[in-house]
């Protein structure tokens, strides 16, 4: 289990979490939904030890697909990926599945937003870690690439029994990728579903769209 115990987090005068607790099962894909400012990214950053906080969090090695790709701009795609994985065959395999194998010798600035995001996804998947964190991983992708990426990730997560925590605004990918969906609002969990099915999308739309 990955546990957040009594987490309190403030950004200057804004209280994001106060005595917030959450447990995440290992080997599952957990999706965190919520409005902007509800603390979704903060939770990921706390787990990745990228921000200070009060409380306790299970110490795990994380891989991260950031909301902005954060690729190292002076390195080619291949060199970016080689920093996290030495196996070139594995790199090529993942890149082929994400349709960026022809961009391995390009620099991030040569790529479109969607291509950079796919490289970031590849990096996140290739880095050997206990938990994969993803912050809006499909935001720059068009529908076709989004569906391809979701299918690929689903396959990979199942194969490697990976623990994944991802944040998104999109109910579409939440329902298709997650084993468990949590909705955050005002420092608390207002929806928690560990049996995601066909009805979940409708439930979520109802919840997200209500005043």
């Amino acid at each position: 289990m990955i546990n957040f115990n009594n987490i309190t987090k403030r950004y200057k005068d804004t209280l994001v979490f106060e005595n917030f607790s959450l447990s995440i099962k290992e080997g599952e894909t957990t999706c965190i939904l919520g409005e902007s400012g509800s603390g979704k990214t903060t939770l990921l950053n706390i787990l990745a030890n990228l921000t200070d906080y009060e409380g306790e969090v299970t110490n795990v090695k994380c891989s991260y697909v950031f909301q902005t790709p954060n690729l190292f701009p002076n390195l080619t795609v291949l060199d970016n990926l080689k920093l996290v994985c030495q196996d070139e065959n594995e790199i090529k395999s993942v890149c082929e599945k994400l349709k960026i194998a022809d961009k391995l010798l390009s620099y991030p600035k040569h790529l479109s937003g969607g291509q950079r995001q796919r490289v970031s996804l590849a990096r996140g998947v290739l880095f050997n870690a206990d938990v994969l964190l993803m912050d809006e991983p499909f935001s720059s992708l068009d529908l076709k690439n989004k569906v391809q990426a979701i299918n690929l990730l689903k396959e990979l997560f199942k194969e490697k029994k990976k623990t994944v925590v991802f944040v998104t605004h999109g109910v579409f990918e939440a329902v298709r990728l997650a084993d468990r969906i949590i909705v955050l609002e005002n420092n608390s969990i207002v929806y928690d579903n560990s049996k995601v099915n066909e009805k979940t999308e409708k439930e979520l739309f109802g919840l997200m769209l209500k005043d």
Binding site: A48, L50, Y64, F66, N70, L71, F72, P73, F127
Partner: peptide, 8 residues
């Protein structure tokens, strides 16, 4: 970039 260097 600094965060990415840290995480990876």
């Amino acid at each position: 970039i600094i965060n990415a260097a840290k995480v990876f």
